[in-house]
Amino acid sequence: MQALSLSQHFVTRQNMKKNRRIFLSICHIVLWFTVVPLLLAACSGLSPKITRTPAPAERSFLINQPKKDQKFASPAQIEKITPITNFEYRLGPGDVVNIKIWRRPELSQEGIVVSPDGLIAIPRVGSVNVLNLTQEEVQKIITVKLEPLYIKPEVTVWVREFHNNKAFVLGRVGKPGVINFPGKGTLLEGLALAGGLPDQGKLTRCAIIRGRENVIWIDLQDLLKNGNMALNAPILNNDVIFIPELNDELIYVMGEVLNPGAIQLKDGMNVLKAIMLAGGMNKNANAEKVFVIRQQNVNGDVIRVDFKRLVERGDFSQNFALLPDDIVFISPTGMAKFNYTLDKLTPALQILNLGTSDAETFGIMAKLRQNLWNQSGFVNSSTTTTGN
């Protein structure tokens, strides 16, 4: 009896060890195929955190299109760089002048072209430098030179063609190049002579470059749409008018959209337009978690947009206007993160489908049979053996 009891005790201990091995094997399987993927899924992808730091006024999140950060010139600043003296035309290279000397037809000349170095040639007088001189000043010079030769010469000088009252118009205009003003030039006249603005409703600014030190930016929308003529700056000789090309600023759409990437910032750009231009959300997108990241300084601000609420309830308080370099990030759903992790792990994770054929393929069922029935090998395999 004592020998039988010892035998039963031994068998019981063996069963307990076998059951313990089976239990540990099952625990390992459960941990590997459930907990580990969930932990990895939680770590996969980006997850913006909403900031609570209030943004500066000029960079805060608004519903309406915010004003650009561009510093435009005020009427006072325009007046400051414009000479106060009355406009007087001064001769320069390319101008065509006529000279009439009363009762001296042999000295009168028509169609005299001012040379690149500012000289004109007159009979009995020779070369005269007229660069940057007015008509009256040229008349006096010629009169003084003729007085030793003639009694009280009467000299008249007038400009037949003006070529020294010019500006250079570059950028987004119909006909960029050199323009010539017949009189006192202004910004609007310069833009008109250059063929006008092809995208008048979208262009917002232009620069006037004067000399080597003065550059001012003009708010074209205020000038053209609001009729603020105080911004119609006088244009001086050799000024440069520059209208930047459209779409020189970008925003970035990332995350669960069909075509993530950089998008050119257009007038009236907001969250809805940006997502649509990126192809719209894909099936993995979480419409309740859209984020706008905006740079303030070294650190940025992040605000959450409930896009689902925007679409389903028409809550346009969620449709924030965008600024240059804004980032729109569309988060994935929790299931999308989980599926992403499954795709990136080993193919053995397909055991979650609970198919016994898959479990058999990856050797899990063989492990269980070894622990339960002391069998080795695979089902339908010629190597399957039965232990004693």
Rank of each mutant, 00 (worst) to 15 (best):
N282C: 07
S331F: 03
A278M: 10
E312T: 12
I293Q: 14
A321L: 03
K289S: 10
I327H: 15
I330W: 05
A285V: 07
K308R: 15
I275A: 09
G268Q: 04
L323R: 14
D306I: 00
I293D: 05
M269A: 10
V298P: 03
I293F: 15
G268W: 01
I330H: 13
S317V: 00
I275K: 13
V311R: 14
D306V: 01
A278C: 11
G268V: 01
Q296H: 04
A321H: 04
R313P: 02
A287T: 05
I330L: 12
I330Y: 05
K308A: 13
F316W: 06
V305C: 14
V311F: 11
N319Q: 05
E312G: 04
K283Q: 12
G314Y: 03
G280H: 06
M281V: 11
G300P: 02
N270K: 07
L277R: 15
D306R: 13
V328T: 08
V292R: 10
N299C: 01
K283R: 12
N286G: 10
G279P: 13
L323N: 12
R309N: 12
E312I: 07
F316K: 11
D315G: 08
D306E: 08
L272H: 04
I303T: 14
N284L: 05
F320S: 06
V298G: 13
A321C: 05
Q296K: 06
F320I: 08
P324T: 13
K273M: 09
V302F: 14
I303Q: 15
V271M: 02
R294L: 04
Q295I: 04
G268P: 01
K283H: 08
G280P: 15
M281L: 10
N319T: 05
K283I: 04
Q318D: 06
N286Y: 06
N284C: 04
K273V: 03
V302I: 09
M281P: 04
A278L: 11
M269V: 00
N270G: 07
V311E: 14
L310C: 12
I275F: 01
I293T: 09
L310M: 13
S331H: 13
V302L: 14
V311I: 13
V302M: 12
